[in-house]
Computed example of a mutant assay.
Amino acid sequence: MKVSELQSILLEELKFLLPDWKFIKSKREFQRSEEGLVWYLHIGCINHLEDFDAVADVAVEFKAGKERLCIVGAELGNIEGRGQLRFPVSNREAAKSSAFELYEHFNERGLPFLRKYSDPAEVVGTLRNGGAEAMLISPFLNQHQDQINRLSSHYGISM
């Protein structure tokens, strides 16, 4: 079976497991939107000759109309503190079981991350404190102050 077919099976399984999420095929990501917030679950594929490993990251995007104020996110394994978490797929059965395992990790680690960092005050506080957690949610240190300023200004968080 082609790697692309295996990827399709994994993504179809995830679509079944995430019925309330909109799937954007061209980006391999699932989205949920509320006013001013977008949650993302992005699926990456690390291709090998005859199989692939799926990886997943989550993100929260803060918006003012169509303008992005800030986006923070992390890979599921990094949220757990163990480095990149890969879900191997080599055949149809592995695609289905890896999809379910990825979904379970998303529920255990990804959703709590999304809920926590959907609070702009939590994001601002984390970025202000700096350190490992700030680098986890936003790895570009040179953007932290701009993210703090944008969120603080828009949501009335005291500087």
Rank of each mutant, 00 (worst) to 15 (best):
Q31N: 10
S98L: 13
I24D: 05
L69N: 15
H105R: 07
Q147A: 07
K15G: 04
V72M: 14
V72L: 12
G125K: 12
I148A: 02
N107I: 15
S26Y: 06
E93H: 12
F16Y: 11
L49V: 13
L114C: 07
V3K: 02
N78R: 10
S138D: 13
K66Q: 04
R82P: 00
E35Q: 09
G65V: 08
S26M: 09
Q143H: 00
N129Y: 05
G131V: 15
K2E: 05
A59P: 04
C45G: 10
F87I: 00
A121G: 03
Q7C: 06
G83P: 04
E80I: 03
F113D: 06
D53E: 11
E35H: 09
K15W: 00
F23P: 02
G77L: 10
N149S: 01
S158P: 04
Y117K: 08
A74Y: 04
P88F: 15
W21H: 03
N129T: 07
G156F: 02
A59I: 03
V55W: 14
H42K: 14
Q143C: 01
S98C: 10
S152K: 09
H105L: 06
R150E: 01
E13C: 08
S26V: 04
H144G: 07
H154P: 03
Y40Q: 07
S98D: 06
D53Y: 04
L37M: 00
P19N: 08
